[in-house]
């Protein structure tokens, strides 16, 4: 069997999703954002949402998300994506609206917008990339930075007595009556990627069916911010992040409005 025999269209089992634009992503090597973008593009394509989806991009590393997925986008101010998405979803109920936010955007400066969009049960999907650090501004402490974790603003490690504790905002989101689906996923292994893909699919279907707010946390790595190679960052995440942020569905229910 030669390579030419195998590399034929009829044998293709995986290709770059059509909705992923040709632009090379600006993310650092090994960044989880790339995998999640790819999954969102794949699922939007699979569910036939190319023409109806509207993404709301955050401020942070994913600020340029709109350059990578071939749908309509709005770039929100820092932390305000859920408010922007609220208006879009209410004014244009035929659209499938989602936000894509990092931990600083969603769980620090945008906490109020996050909590209130969830508690109103807005028909949106929130994708929450939690890598415990501010990537774009150069590796500062995030609301989700683990205790003891070194960042450029906690150079000796996060101390609860000075910096407070990391926030598990997905657990808070799950407590709110407006969320129908809250799950915590990762994309560090092929199995994790498959699970995350399924979660995003579920969340987008919920959004289309107006079932309330779907909240998909992806525990992620930031190899540049963590100062580890991508492979070591994955290992560090498994050993440290998952203890604080265990993977799995936190809530899967029906919202009664």
């Amino acid at each position: 069997m030669t390579r030419e025999d195998i590399i034929k269209d009829e044998n293709k089992v995986y290709s770059r999703p059509r909705l992923l634009l040709d632009a090379t992503m600006h993310y650092c090597p090994g960044c989880s954002h790339g995998v999640v973008h790819k999954l969102v593009a794949e699922v939007l394509e699979e569910l036939g949402m190319e023409d109806t989806a509207i993404g709301v991009a955050p401020v942070g590393c994913a600020v340029f998300a709109y350059n990578y997925i071939d749908i309509d986008w709005i770039e929100a101010a820092h932390g305000r994506a859920p408010a922007v998405a609220t208006a879009v979803s209410r004014l244009q109920p035929d659209n499938v609206v989602f936000t894509y936010q990092g931990d600083g955007d969603l769980a620090a400066i945008g906490t109020a917008e996050t909590i209130h969009a969830c508690t109103r049960g807005e028909n949106i999907m929130i994708i929450f990339i939690n890598n415990g650090i501010y990537g774009m501004t150069g590796g500062q402490m995030a609301p989700t930075t683990l205790e003891g974790m070194k960042t450029s603003t906690t150079p000796y490690g996060r101390r609860a007595d000075i910096n407070g504790f990391p926030v598990k905002i997905s657990d808070i989101a799950a407590m709110l009556d407006g969320t129908c689906y809250v799950t915590r996923q990762a994309v560090h292994t092929p199995a994790a990627v498959r699970s995350a893909r399924k979660a995003i699919r579920q969340a987008l279907i919920n959004t289309r069916e107006k079932r309330g707010t779907s909240f998909v946390e992806i525990v992620s790595t930031c190899s540049s911010g963590w100062k580890l190679s991508p492979v070591k960052a994955n290992k560090w995440m498994e050993e440290n992040m998952f203890a604080k942020y265990p993977l799995g569905d936190i809530k899967n229910t029906e919202v009664k409005k």
Binding site: I74, A76, R80, V84, Q92, E113, H116
Partner: peptide
């Protein structure tokens, strides 16, 4: 819609205006 803050309200306006 009664928003959770003036900040949220103006960003809802930003979202709606974008549409």
């Amino acid at each position: 819609l009664q928003a959770e803050s003036e900040v949220a309200a103006i960003n809802m306006v930003y979202g709606g205006a974008s549409c």
